[in-house]
């Protein structure tokens, strides 16, 4: 099934520069409906109010980290199957394993290229 390029996507990062970078790269890939949140709490509030098709989240944020957000999402009946991609500088093996066990769909290490982002999104969403 073709990917709906108009589906709402939520990007979560506490660095405004990263939000801009990810937004720009997603826009270039053809996605047009992109919302932003600056930490897990902010993201959770937005997720409760809108049906998103994908979350692209940083890990290291306060007061709620991306990892905690992922756990909340997977623990919520309405959100538990929402595709969730972690884009983070946390690059220890234990981080990747913990995220995987919490149910992350893919994990991108910062700094990343537009090509890597595209490839991982294709893995999660299907070809577009």
């Amino acid at each position: 099934m073709a990917v709906n390029m108009k589906m709402p996507i939520l990007i979560v990062d506490d660095y405004k520069t990263m939000l801009r970078i990810v937004r720009n790269l997603l826009t270039k890939l053809g996605f047009s409906d992109i919302d932003e949140a600056t930490d897990g709490m902010d993201a959770l509030a937005k997720l409760k109010n809108r049906n998103y098709g994908l979350v692209v989240s940083d890990w290291n944020m306060q007061p709620m980290t991306g990892y905690e957000l992922l756990q909340k999402v997977r623990g919520d009946d309405r959100l538990k199957s929402l595709p969730f991609v972690m884009v983070t500088a946390e690059s220890k093996v234990e981080n990747v394993i913990a995220a995987r066990q919490a149910g992350v769909n893919n994990y991108i290490i910062k700094p990343f290229s537009a090509e890597v982002l595209k490839a991982k999104l294709k893995t999660v969403l299907g070809d577009f």
Binding site: Y15, T17, M18, R20, A89, P111
Partner: peptide
């Protein structure tokens, strides 16, 4: 755009 990731 990719290079600007350094700021984070």
């Amino acid at each position: 755009m990719e290079a600007c990731c350094f700021q984070d």
